Amino acid sequence: KLPPGWEKRMFANGTVYYFNHITNASQFERPSG
């Protein structure tokens, strides 16, 4: 399970990334916590 605010998303080319809808942060590494 991801930390609060984070969700797993995917680009059109299939690349997975993680987006935080609270802070609008995005990253390729899975957030810890």
Results as ranks from 00 to 15, higher is better:
V16E: 15
G5F: 08
N24W: 05
F28G: 07
R30G: 04
R9M: 11
Y17N: 02
N20F: 02
K1H: 12
T23E: 06
L2V: 04
Q27Y: 05
F19S: 02
N13A: 03
F11M: 15
K8N: 02
F19P: 05
M10S: 11
E7A: 06
E7S: 08
N13Y: 02
Q27A: 06
T23W: 04
A12W: 08
G33T: 13
F28K: 10
I22M: 11
P3Y: 04
P3T: 03
G33H: 12
R9W: 02
K8S: 08
G14Q: 04
F11D: 15
I22W: 09
G14W: 02
V16S: 07
I22N: 10
G5M: 06
G5I: 04
P4D: 12
Y18W: 09
F28N: 09
F11A: 15
P31I: 01
P3A: 07
I22T: 09
P3L: 06
Y18P: 02
W6D: 00
H21W: 14
F28W: 10
G14A: 03
Y18I: 01
A25L: 13
P4L: 11
S32T: 14
N24A: 10
S26D: 04
G14P: 00
E7I: 09
M10W: 12
T23R: 03
K1F: 13
H21M: 12
K8D: 02
F11P: 04
A12T: 11
R30D: 12
M10A: 09
P4K: 09
S26K: 11
L2N: 02
V16Q: 06
F19D: 03
T23I: 05
T15S: 09
K8H: 05
S32P: 11
W6E: 00
T23A: 04
R9T: 04
L2P: 11
G5V: 02
N20Y: 03
E7P: 00
G33I: 13
N24V: 04
P4W: 11
V16K: 05
A12Y: 07
S26N: 07
T23P: 00
L2F: 03
Y17Q: 05
T15I: 13
F19E: 06
A12D: 12
N20Q: 03
A25Y: 08
T23M: 06
L2R: 01
V16D: 08
G33Q: 13
N13M: 02
R30M: 12
A25K: 13
A25R: 12
K8T: 09
F19R: 01
G14Y: 01
M10R: 09
E7L: 06
N20A: 01
A25V: 15
P3V: 02
F11S: 15
N24G: 15
N13S: 07
H21I: 15
K8Q: 12
E29K: 05
F19L: 05
Q27T: 09
K8E: 13
Q27L: 05
G14D: 04
S32Y: 12
A12F: 06
A12P: 15
L2S: 02
Q27G: 02
T23K: 03
G5D: 06
V16H: 09
E29T: 08
G14H: 02
A25S: 12
L2A: 03
L2D: 03
F11R: 10
A25M: 14
N20K: 00
T15R: 09
V16T: 09
F11H: 14
R30Y: 13
E7T: 08
F11I: 06
S32H: 11
M10E: 11
V16I: 14
T15P: 05
G5T: 03
R30L: 11
Q27V: 08
A25G: 07
F28H: 08
V16G: 04
L2Q: 02
T23N: 07
A12E: 14
N20T: 00
F19W: 09
Y18A: 00
E29H: 08
N13G: 07
L2W: 04
M10G: 05
Y18Q: 00
G33P: 13
K8Y: 07
R9N: 03
F11Q: 13
S26H: 12
M10V: 14
I22V: 12
F11T: 15
K8P: 06
S26M: 15
G33A: 13
K8M: 15
Q27E: 04
R30T: 09
E29D: 11
N20M: 02
E7Q: 07
H21Q: 11
R30V: 14
T23V: 04
T15F: 08
Y17V: 09
N20R: 00
P31R: 01
T15L: 12
I22R: 07
Q27N: 04
E7W: 03
L2G: 02
E29N: 07
S32E: 14
V16P: 09
F28P: 08
F28T: 12
Y17H: 05
G5N: 09
N13R: 02
R9Y: 07
Q27F: 04
S26G: 07
Y18T: 00
N13E: 06
N13D: 15
P4T: 09
A12N: 10
R30F: 15
N20E: 03
G33V: 14
Q27W: 05
N13V: 04
A12Q: 11
R30Q: 10
N24H: 12
A25P: 00
Y18E: 01
M10L: 11
Y18M: 00
E7F: 06
S26W: 15
N24F: 08
F28Y: 11
H21L: 15
T23L: 07
R30P: 14
R30A: 11
P31Y: 01
N24S: 10
V16A: 07
P31L: 01
N13K: 03
G14K: 03
N20W: 02
F19Q: 04
P3F: 03
G33F: 15
P31K: 01
G33W: 15
E29F: 07
T15E: 15
W6P: 00
T15Y: 07
F28I: 11
S26T: 15
W6T: 00
F19G: 01
F19I: 08
P3N: 03
Y18V: 00
H21G: 07
F28D: 07
G5P: 10
W6M: 00
E29S: 06
K1D: 15
N20V: 01
E29I: 07
G5S: 05
S32A: 11
G33S: 13
T23F: 05
Y17E: 08
W6R: 00
H21T: 15
L2T: 03
N24T: 07
Q27I: 06
W6H: 00
K1A: 14
F11L: 15
R9V: 09
M10P: 02
P4M: 10
F11C: 15
S32G: 14
A12C: 12
Y18D: 01
S32R: 09
H21Y: 15
G5R: 02
N13H: 04
G5K: 02
I22F: 13
K8A: 10
E7N: 04
P3E: 05
K1Q: 15
T23D: 05
F19K: 03
